[in-house]
Each structure stands twice: as structure tokens, then as C-alpha cells.
Amino acid sequence: MPVLSADLCLSRGDFTLDVALSVAPGEVLALLGPNGAGKSSALRALAGLIPLTGGHVRLDGDDHTRTPVERRPIGMVFQDYLLFQHMSALDNVAFGPRCQGLSKADARARAAALLDHMDLAGYARSRPRDLSGGQAQRVALARALAVRPRLLLLDEPMAALDVGTRDHVRGRLRHLLEEFDGATVLVTHDPLDAMVLADRIAVIENGRVVQQGPPAEVARRPRTPYVARLVGLNLFHGRAEGTVVTLSGGARVEVHEAYDGPALVAFPPRAVALYPERPRGGPRNVWPLEVDGVERFGDQVRVRLTGPLDLAADISPAALAELGLARGGTVWAGVKAAEVECYPG
């Protein structure tokens, strides 16, 4: 039985959110989506900070749809961590247990154990403003876990950190989340956070879940242009007949696995090769396209192409020089069938 099973319906003005979620024990679900997609609202609704206009929230089978926030078996890590500035790290963590009725000594003992577990024993007496971003994040996590929640909610847990420290902190957070046996829902707009931290990703756009699955699957088989952009793939809608997919724009793409029916076709920009003229032999998929733009992309150059189909190609600066590409010029793009992923659309 899942720990969390929720159907969240919210309407506010002309925005409506309708999201069904289910999270198993020990599972981490990431809600990934653009700003304003409704993912933070979904999280706040799970916490009880905003009322649902419909649907339900069940935790371990108990209905908590109408339970006030302070009585829900939840713990929440907020975007800026929101540690109480007038309390030490220890008292921040002991706050929840105190509210649950533990004596001051017991609450502090539980808080101290949690801080110790998070390698923060030396910072128990520190004020929040004296902590680094990563330390503050762990104190916030310890504070949320101190109430022994069944549902752990994290709102953009990495957003407040410097880019330089993110990788390290993210790895550490993943490790700590793995130990939690309840359900975890985290909200992020950064696909890397979602890929690293989550066991499953639910992509939310315009208040709806548009794709759901394990990170690897989402990364390999995006279902919407937004997800494709996030994971850096070229994505096309089309209709498959055997190993040939006819795209909505009319272009044809050969794939290596046969399928029949509406299909999605995806391939990475680095799989695209560019030729000054139509290549002889070489890849089976070749299209003459117009150069729409050229930009640096890491140590590669990303060439945006338009024509029967719009796609991005990553080539080396040397190749760019050889091709002598300029905006408005024509070039032949080729992709091997083996590099093209085709899946039901």
C-alpha cells in the first residue's frame, strides 16, 4: 500500500490544478515543472497550507483531507529553509517534538541525535545565520524529520544554494533521503535535482501531470517539448508504420525498432551530423535544413536548424569552421536510425 495517495484539485481564478499522486514507502517523487505550473501549490496542498477545492489526501490509508496543517503527519523543508532565526539549530530541530508534547529534555535529545546523524553535532548551538547553505539545509531536514513524519515535503531544496556547492549538497541530500522510510515529495524546476534525488519524476505543466516515470525513462523518452528541452533531446510527434515514422510536418524518420501507431521520436543533438552536401552512404535519415542560429554549448557548438523539422545539432567548433555555417545558410543533417528512440505517443 502506498504511504501517500492523493488527488489534488485546486482552482484559483483561471488556474486549475488536478494532480493524482501516489508514493510508496521509502520512495522519493519529484514534481518537476516550469514556474507557475502548480507544483508548489500541489506541495502546499499536501501540507494543508492551502485548502483543496476537491479530491483527497490519504496517508497510510487515513484520510487527512480536512486535517489542519499542525496535525498532519508531515515534515516540510521550505525553499529558504525558514529556520527560526531567534533559536539555535538544536532548538529549531527540537521545536517540532516540543509541539508534539515531548519534554524539553527529550525533545532536545532527539534533536541532538538527528543533528549528530547529519554531522552537525558541532553546530547545535549555532544560530541559523551562522550556518552555511548546506548546513542550513540539513538542519531544516533534521527539523522536518524530528516530528517523525510519514510524508516528507521538500520545496525547491537546492534553490537557495550557490551553484558551486550544489553538487556536493545534492549528493548528501540524496543519501539522507534514502534513509527515510516514509513517502517523500519534492518540488523542483531543475531536472538535475529531479534526476539525482528522485526515484520517480512527475512532470507538471499547466496544473496537470504530463509525464510520470523513473528518471532514466523520463530522460530517454520525454513526452512534451518542455521535458525534451529539460533533458536536452530533439522530440517529434508522428505516426509509426513499421520502422518508418512520418512526422506531423511531413518529414520521414527511419528508426531501428518497428512499431505501429501514434509515436514519439527522440534523439540527442550530439547524434546529429552535419554535411555541406547530401552525403553518399552514411546515415539513412538526412534532411536539407536552414541554419536558424549558432551558439556555444559547453565545449561544443549548438546549431539550431529549421525546415521540414526543427532540430538542434551539437558539433565541434572545428566542424563549424569547416562547414562555414552562417545564419540563413543551408546544410544537410543526418541521424543514424540506431540513435533514434521511438516510443508510443
Binding site: A47, L49, V69, E70, R71, R72, I74, G75, M76, F78, D80, L82, F84, F95, G96, C99, Q100, R143, A144, A146, V147, L153
Partner: peptide, 15 residues
């Protein structure tokens, strides 16, 4: 005052 701190306290079980 930043009311989100009050929300944080509520999620920790504070009435």
C-alpha cells in the same frame, strides 16, 4: 514579518 515562518511552525505541529 515573513509569514512563511509561521507556516513552517505549523507544519511542525505548532497550534
Amino acid at each position: 514579518a515573513d509569514r512563511r515562518y509561521e507556516e513552517a511552525a505549523a507544519t511542525l505541529g505548532a497550534g
